[in-house]
Amino acid sequence: MWFVYRNYDMQEIRATLNKGINYWWLLLSMLVGLASHFSRTIRWQMLIEPIEKKTHITNTFFAVMIGYFANLLIPRMGEISRCGVLSRYEKVSVSRLIGTVVVERLMDVIMLIICLLLVLALQFSVVTEFLFKNTDFSKFSNVFTSVWTYVVILVLILGVRFFKKWFSQTSPYIKLKGLWAKFSEGFLAVKNIKNKWLFVMHTIFIWIMYFLMIYVCFFAFEFTSHLTPLAGLSAFVLGSLGMVAPVQGGMGPWHFMVIATLQMYGVSENEGAAFALIVWSSINAMIVVLGIVSMIILPLINRHQADGQ
């Protein structure tokens, strides 16, 4: 965050925000986000049911929200956290749950690629201008032309082969093989889903809601209210690429990508910075509140399990 905002005049950003924000649109964005989280909960249940059992909707939803909250504390920790939470309250295998989460993430990657291709098809000039303005392609070419790159790759390959041969003769390897078998069951659960079309529809719905979370926020600010849905799609997709960075909730990279994208559509740098700051904060404020509430409520609604132990 400091790296992205270090050169901005915070007084100017504050003045931009003082021009007026329609908070009802931000509230609508939060509700749209809540709908996506609930849909993700149902989709996860559909993956879990064939290999374990149908989990309770409340436990699954609260586990998902705790996972989102954990991602704001430690990057990528949410995927493990929600599996651990659900395993505790539903008595299901963590390894199998992790396998189902990997399937979920693969589906999300596919959807992100589809959205990126859609943006490239509809806004090719904007995206190429963005890439050439914000990417130093010479650094990429230097990586592939350096002899050290290939030396490192060779050393890694030899190291992995040696380690694998040595590790296969140890007792932890046998235990890991058992965990891998359970993980594979979870990963392959998608083949046994009862209603595959419903699973696909939930995936599409989740990503439509993600797009709307950003686009409806355009109407909260006068300087973005005139932008088209295509501009919203570009900001959403390029911002999503920023979320791939291993930082808490995309903090920093997401802001940079959104600010740079909005500039392509005529929004000033300070206005884009104000938009990114408020939108990211409002979306993640909901996650913080629901994450904390989930951690409080889960033990209460499952108290009978603890009493029975």
Rank of each mutant, 00 (worst) to 15 (best):
Y5Q: 06
R6F: 10
N7E: 10
N7C: 09
N7T: 11
N7Y: 09
Y8A: 13
M10Y: 12
Q11E: 15
Q11Y: 14
E12I: 08
R14I: 14
A15H: 12
A15L: 15
A15W: 15
T16V: 12
T16I: 11
T16M: 09
N18E: 13
N18G: 15
K19W: 15
G20H: 00
G20N: 02
G20E: 02
I21C: 04
I21R: 08
N22V: 13
Y23L: 09
Y23Q: 09
W24M: 13
W25T: 08
L26K: 04
L26G: 02
L26P: 02
L26R: 03
L26C: 03
L28F: 09
L28T: 11
S29F: 06
L31P: 07
V32T: 02
V32N: 00
G33N: 07
G33H: 05
L34C: 08
L34D: 07
L34M: 10
S36A: 13
S36V: 06
S36L: 06
H37F: 14
H37T: 14
F38D: 04
F38E: 04
S39Q: 11
S39M: 10
S39E: 12
R40P: 01
R40H: 07
R40D: 01
T41M: 02
T41G: 01
T41R: 00
I42P: 01
I42M: 02
R43S: 04
R43H: 05
R43T: 01
W44T: 06
W44G: 00
Q45N: 12
Q45T: 13
Q45K: 11
Q45P: 06
Q45Y: 12
M46V: 07
M46L: 10
L47Y: 03
L47M: 09
I48D: 01
I48N: 00
E49G: 08
E49R: 09
P50R: 04
P50H: 03
P50V: 02
I51T: 10
K53Q: 03
K53R: 05
K54D: 10
K54G: 05
K54M: 07
T55Q: 00
T55C: 01
